[in-house]
Design a protein around this nucleic acid. Sequence first.
DNA 1: ATTCATGCAAACAATTTGCACGATC
DNA 2: GATCGTGCAAATTGTTTGCATGAAT
Lengths: 132, 132
Amino acid sequence: MRATIQRQIIMDTLARLHQHATAEEVYQAIHAQHPTISKATVYRNLQAFAQQGDLVSLQIEGDATRYDHRLALHYHFVCKQCDAIFDVDITPVEHINQNVQEQYGFEVDTHEIVFRGICPACAANQNKHSNT
Amino acid sequence: MRATIQRQIIMDTLARLHQHATAEEVYQAIHAQHPTISKATVYRNLQAFAQQGDLVSLQIEGDATRYDHRLALHYHFVCKQCDAIFDVDITPVEHINQNVQEQYGFEVDTHEIVFRGICPACAANQNKHSNT
DNA sequence: ATTCATGCAAACAATTTGCACGATC
DNA sequence: GATCGTGCAAATTGTTTGCATGAAT
């Protein structure tokens, strides 16, 4: 993999952007500063980085693929109301990889966990509206 | 929600089909028997069912949304090689919902876990090919 | 010099939507 | 009979691809 300016910029931008950005968001942010960098390059490279493990791709919402530059094992929480995605840093339950491996014979490399529910902000809003 | 023949057929078909079918697959299966049922109806209703909790939607692979009619809490394993999706029935780790709730203040309803690795069939293949 | 990456625009795939008509309550 | 659901085709959205040119090794 060659070291191109584009790749550098893409990585920098994702890190600078709020986490869990979509390819489109990364492209827009880049485009503002570097109008010549194409969308195809952004898509291609985010994907390539993810494949190499330099980035993690997430398909948690219904919409677009999101990219996360935090490589350390962590989980995610998605608010059913506002669709916001939050990082969840609880103690990893790595032992379950082992469980699955033993029970099914799969070679388990990784696991991802997505929690769903209501975030504090939305919970507060609901209460406010239901007060009569 | 009204009881239409289409909805009945969609539910029946998903149950009959191998699990984790895409909307397109459900549509194709239905179309063979009932050519007048439209793709839009299949998409609309799978989505509606998922929203009501009569079905679970999965965004695990890069491609299309998949639907699962098994409502009991279970997890999934995706083979990195062949992209097949397997059900994983290990003891649910429900207590982690509690952990996240306490640590972050989220109201946690559910969690999903996706394991990734190599399935036995693909593992066997790799060994075969690397034997020299 | 060779090989790989980029930019552009066109192609694709999955999904959604507007609207007139038909079915369910 | 009023309302909600369906079918159709067209519109969107997210993403990928072919190809000629430019950049990195």
